[in-house]
């Protein structure tokens, strides 16, 4: 799965979690840019992304997520680690 494919799939996750088809993600997108992205929604995003990408984030990983770019990089690294490539 390429980085752009991850962006596309992650965009769908965001659209579903926030129930908003108009969401467009960029690496710089942060919680301030999306209405409703609070700490609870953040957990929902993490859980939905785990299901979508077949990965599991560590407690420590979750503290490094500051924007969508971090999120994508983390998914990519996790997928490589579990052999999805």
């Amino acid at each position: 799965m390429s980085q752009s494919e991850i962006y596309i799939a992650l965009t769908e996750v965001f659209q579903e979690v926030f129930d908003d088809d108009s969401i467009v993600l960029t690496p710089e997108t942060t919680a301030d840019d999306i209405e409703g992205w609070d700490s609870q929604a953040h957990v929902s995003l993490v859980v939905a992304a785990e299901s979508q990408f077949g990965v599991r984030f560590r407690t420590a990983d979750l503290e490094t997520l500051h924007n969508v770019g971090d999120f994508v990089a983390l998914i990519e690294a996790k997928r490589e680690a579990v052999g999805h490539g």
């Binding site: 700490s39 609870q40 957990v43 929902s44 993490v46 859980v47 299901s51 984030f57 560590r58 407690t59 979750l62």
Partner: peptide, 14 residues
Amino acid sequence: PVRWHQAKQLVSPL
């Protein structure tokens, strides 16, 4: 336990 430490969620959102 991850959700517990992250957000004090006893029941996972899943």
